[in-house]
Computed example of a mutant assay.
Amino acid sequence: MQAVRGGLLATVALLTLGFAPAHALPEEAAESNSLHLTVSSGDDHTSSIIGTLLHCDPPRGHSHAAEACKELAAADGDIARIPVKPDVVCSMIYAPVTASASGEWGGRQVEYSRTFSNSCVMDAETGSVFALSDSSEPSD
């Protein structure tokens, strides 16, 4: 009789644990803040393409991830809202680059694509988000 009672108690305990409500993750942890970023150069958008996946929870996957994530957070994930760097002077040389991003920020889909006249203009208008290479080559 005691063995049956012990078995019943164990079964009730397992069922209770199995039906206990799961603890919800904090809202920030449930949201994915990550973007697939590409930069292509040339008029046909296929001359040279570089890309990476930027994760912001925690920042990784990008040579300037912490700075890019900070800029995106300040703009609520809207790349077009990143403030233009005021002290940047770019040449007027036409060397087009297209910056594209797709992914999720704050639970919303992000799709961004814009062609800039050169990489200096892109850097001035998008901050660190599309600074995908660590090359020491100067921007246009």
Rank of each mutant, 00 (worst) to 15 (best):
M1I: 06
Q2D: 10
R5D: 07
G7V: 03
L9Y: 09
L9D: 09
V12G: 06
V12N: 02
V12W: 10
A13G: 12
L17F: 14
L17N: 09
F19C: 12
A20C: 04
A22P: 02
H23P: 02
H23C: 03
H23N: 06
L25A: 13
L25I: 01
P26V: 07
P26A: 01
P26T: 12
E31M: 10
S32L: 11
S32T: 08
S34F: 01
S34H: 08
S34Q: 14
H36W: 08
H36A: 05
H36C: 00
H36I: 04
T38I: 05
V39W: 11
S40P: 01
S40T: 12
S40G: 00
S41R: 14
S41A: 12
D44Q: 10
H45V: 03
H45Y: 05
H45K: 13
T46V: 11
T46K: 12
I49W: 03
I50T: 10
G51D: 03
G51P: 01
T52C: 05
D57Q: 14
P58F: 00
P59D: 02
P59G: 01
G61R: 02
A65V: 01
A65H: 05
K70Q: 13
K70Y: 03
E71F: 00
E71M: 01
A73R: 15
A75S: 12
A75F: 04
G77W: 11
G77E: 11
A80Y: 03
R81V: 00
C90W: 04
S91Q: 11
I93E: 14
I93M: 12
Y94N: 10
Y94H: 14
A95R: 15
A99F: 06
A99C: 04
S100I: 00
A101T: 07
W105V: 05
G106V: 04
G107M: 09
Q109K: 15
V110I: 15
V110C: 08
E111L: 10
F116L: 03
F116Y: 15
F116C: 04
F116D: 08
S117F: 05
M122K: 13
D123R: 15
D123C: 00
A124H: 06
T126W: 12
F130A: 06
F130Q: 13
L132S: 07
D134G: 09
D134E: 14
P138N: 11
P138C: 01
P138D: 13
P138W: 07
S139V: 07
